[in-house]
Design a protein around this nucleic acid. Structure first.
Lengths: 287, 287
DNA sequence: TGGGGTCCTGAAATTGAATTACGCAACCGG
DNA sequence: CCGGTTGCGTAATTCAATTTCAGGACCCCA
């Protein structure tokens, strides 16, 4: 997992055969994955034994093992180390975005607190009414997705991007209401206030946010998502891929918690779509 | 890419050493990646040469090459072949969702038509006004994202989930308007009509949709995204990850097309957010 | 300044894994 | 019942990777 980190560090050193090898590898990962030890040695201008030693030093059993580990890492993280190359060709842009998105998913999967997920799913499952709240673009999308994923399981959901409105609704919330909020920063004062208000009334709140943020401190169940954001101001945030995945996992857990009801509702939604729209029931649910 | 497909097919055959080998490999991919040819041969109960022949038959240069290819595929698609296991534990659900999302991104990257992307980016860049249209949950999200990504580059965008409204706006559209629509099915009659209407007026349209769909036929620039949807009715569509990536690539290309303007606008947006919200400028742009 | 030690490196030797060659056995068509 | 074909394992071979070893650079201390 940390192979790339190690490689990048090694490549950063000013001199030494290891640095040269690391640079050669990073320069053309595909080549390194295909090449024999002799070919790689030649390209890097070192001897074959040096390659073996290099492989060992960065934590592999030998060169073949290094190749396998490299291949395992190659897709996710491929471009990560060339830090913030301002990619300009369309191919580079596409690769950059896909790679970062996959990396975000990967990291999310590593760090996801499944116990918190389950608690959240249980809360949602038992709710009489669900409020999904998020604002600011990315989290607005997540709030909308929560609605989109949960209503079809037979749950009563309202989603909102209007924090002022949510604050009012929080004051007016009744027993049985579960509120789920999303905020990548977790520092929006209105949102935090909203969650605190609900807490004071003994109403459960779920937050998708950064750990340690004010929002995380205020919510009753926290699903933390901590990801490094890149420096490239032009690159749309890959973090939302992780948030989206979190929504999906949550929705799935809710669905499984009460399979029968969910299935029934889904069938009804689907049937109506098929009837009114296209008659093609292989198309997916929702457009 | 198709290695897993091939493996799954081979494993499906009732008899033969190849089938046994494929099953052995799929049964424990990690083992296969680490094992020597002799170890794998023993576990499968075949001879070493059979493993080499097997590797060749499924399209690899030899066993080491097979291992590398296997490693490349291992994360994405790992669970793919155990087709539609109805995963029930939270860990399985999470892995399933992350894997499928990564797979969707992977496939998107493979098939993305960069030329079409560039044409679309050029159209957007040159537009006086952009209409982003999508409905039905998934595509509503995409329309919203298009707005969210493009406004901050200094473009004038309106997004809508209301197809009836969009139809009216299409009739009223003026020179300089570029319309970008998203539809995973590509068969919504109103949306197709909307695009046709614009075409008749000589106004450019961009569609993110399935190839071969009515919508794809009607639009002037088509960004095709063809992905298989899983059978699990409970699993939220992983296709939207691919759509989201498409939006990001597009937004990035637009940004680079006129770097100076984009940067300026982004800086302004960011400055305002930092000022009014948190004073922490490492937080990402939008919540 | 010089001697001993350590570290780094590549050439050569060695090991060991993967592949090829070969032959046997089963199956198929005539 | 007999060639021909195919599929497989054993044994031989090849080739890649690794270990060994020796040369050289650098450093520390006398």
């Amino acid at each position: 997992m940390d192979l790339f980190q190690t490689l990048a560090n090694t490549a950063g050193k000013p001199e030494g055969l290891d640095a040269r090898l690391a640079r050669t590898v990073l320069d053309d990962v595909d080549f390194a994955m295909r090449a024999s030890i002799a070919e790689l040695a030649e390209r890097a201008g070192v001897s074959a034994p040096s390659v073996t030693r290099f492989s060992r030093r960065i934590g592999c059993a030998g060169y073949p093992d290094f190749k396998v580990k490299l291949a395992q890492m190659a897709y996710v993280g491929l471009r990560y180390l060339k830090p913030e190359v301002t990619s300009t060709t369309p191919a580079e842009v596409a690769e950059d975005i896909v790679t970062k998105a996959q990396d975000a998913l990967f990291r999310f999967h590593r760090q996801v607190d499944l116990a918190a997920m389950e608690r959240a799913a249980q809360l949602l499952r038992g709710a009489d009414f669900i409020q999904a709240v998020g604002a600011g673009g990315n989290s607005s999308m997540i709030a909308g997705e929560l609605h989109n994923r949960l209503f079809r399981l037979g749950l009563r959901v309202h989603s909102s991007n209007d924090l002022t409105m949510s604050l009012m609704q929080a004051s007016a919330a009744t027993e049985g209401t579960v509120t789920i909020v999303s905020s990548m920063t977790g520092i929006d004062a209105t949102l935090v206030r909203c969650v605190e208000l609900l807490g004071q009334q003994g109403l459960p709140t779920i937050a998708l946010t950064q750990s340690g943020s004010p929002l995380a401190k205020a919510a009753s169940v926290v699903i933390t998502i901590d990801l490094p954001e890149g420096q490239n101001i032009f690159r749309p945030s890959s973090t939302r891929f992780a948030y989206l995945a979190a929504v999906d996992v949550l929705a799935n857990l809710v669905a499984y918690a009460d399979r029968a009801t969910s299935l029934q509702t889904l069938r009804r939604v689907k049937a109506e779509l098929v009837r009114s729209r296209d008659g093609d029931d292989r198309q997916l649910l929702g457009d």
